Amino acid sequence: MAVTRRGYIFGAFVSGVTGVLFIVVALASDSWVVSTLTVSSQQAASNIRYGLFGGELTLREMATPQMHPLHMTCAADVNACAVSCKTERESRLVEVRALANGYRPTAACGGTTEVDTSNPLDTTPVISFAFYVILITLLVIDLVLGVAAAGLAILNATKNPTEPVFGLPGCLWTNVAAALVGITVMLMFGIYWLTSGLNEHLAISYIALGLFTPGAGLGFSYWLLLGGCLCFIANVVLMQTRAYLLERDPPPPVIDIQNHSDGTIFLY
């Protein structure tokens, strides 16, 4: 009986599902950017964290901390995104457009935004809208590839495929593509973090206006992508190891019917 070593394929399925979960949590969680916010007049540092869609700002200006939800707000007409704690969408858009033009909006979590145009900022503390859209698109593509890789793995672990594209070659290359896309996203955001000044202004008016000094870093949401990439790379290793072991196994015995004239019945 031929040895199929399907345990390796099932292992790739489990690892693929884990990689998909990493990507889903990275997309949905709010800790891509984390930072302490310090100022000399405060006894305790404030905190900020936000992800691709929102986050939270914790201000400790008083004895009781004040927590404000953050909203990732984009204005395509000025190619800018930023996080804002304003309670009204229109006020958040006014704030983002002001930051994109180098103006100073009011840094308060109210329902209105006033803009000071007399003392412009040295830099525009925003995230590029085009970069933001490309980042989200690549993450969605990575998620789709991860789901496809896991689906092909369980398909091959439970039954023999009938079409080459749905077989192990398709599963292998889907995992390769998922790993490459994940690495691309990590490199994109990491390089953008260092070169765009995002690590200094955090794309929020509280930092841009110099009200706080940040102690910024990349949060666990970003590093979860590394876990997803490692899962997809592990799948490639598992399938290549299986292929190597199958090639190393001795071939099944070949029965020559002509050498058996004693009436033996052969089953195929």
Rank of each mutant, 00 (worst) to 15 (best):
D30G: 12
S31M: 01
S31Q: 04
W32G: 04
W32L: 07
W32E: 02
V33C: 00
V34K: 15
V34P: 00
T36R: 10
L37T: 03
T38L: 06
V39N: 08
S40T: 05
S41T: 14
Q43K: 11
Q43H: 10
N47H: 12
N47E: 14
I48V: 15
R49L: 01
L52N: 11
F53C: 03
F53P: 02
G54K: 09
G55R: 07
L57A: 06
L57R: 01
T58K: 06
L59G: 03
L59F: 08
R60M: 10
M62Y: 12
P65Q: 02
Q66C: 03
Q66K: 14
H68V: 13
H68G: 04
H68P: 01
H68E: 15
P69Y: 00
L70H: 10
L70R: 05
L70Q: 10
L70P: 06
M72N: 10
T73Q: 07
A75G: 01
A75V: 13
A75N: 03
D77F: 11
D77T: 15
N79P: 08
N79R: 04
A80Q: 06
C81Y: 06
A82R: 01
V83W: 00
S84V: 11
S84Q: 12
S84E: 14
C85G: 15
T87Q: 12
E88T: 13
R92N: 14
L93Q: 15
L93G: 09
L93P: 08
L93H: 13
L93S: 10
V94E: 09
E95S: 04
A100Y: 05
A100F: 05
A100E: 01
A100H: 02
A100S: 10
Y103P: 06
Y103K: 08
R104E: 08
R104F: 09
R104V: 07
P105Q: 07
P105H: 15
T106I: 12
A108C: 05
A108H: 13
C109E: 06
G110A: 05
G111R: 15
T112V: 09
T113C: 13
E114K: 09
E114L: 13
D116R: 07
T117K: 09
N119V: 09
P120K: 05
P120S: 04
P120M: 03
P120D: 03
L121H: 09
T123A: 02
P125W: 01
V126E: 04
I127Q: 15
S128A: 00
F129N: 13
F129Y: 14
A130F: 07
A130V: 11
F131C: 05
I136T: 03
T137R: 13
T137K: 13
T137P: 05
L139I: 04
D142I: 02
L143I: 13
L145P: 04
G146D: 14
G146L: 13
V147A: 12
A148M: 14
A150L: 06
L152I: 06
L152A: 05
L155D: 02
L155Y: 08
N156Q: 06
A157S: 12
A157W: 09
T158M: 09
N160T: 12
N160M: 08
N160A: 11
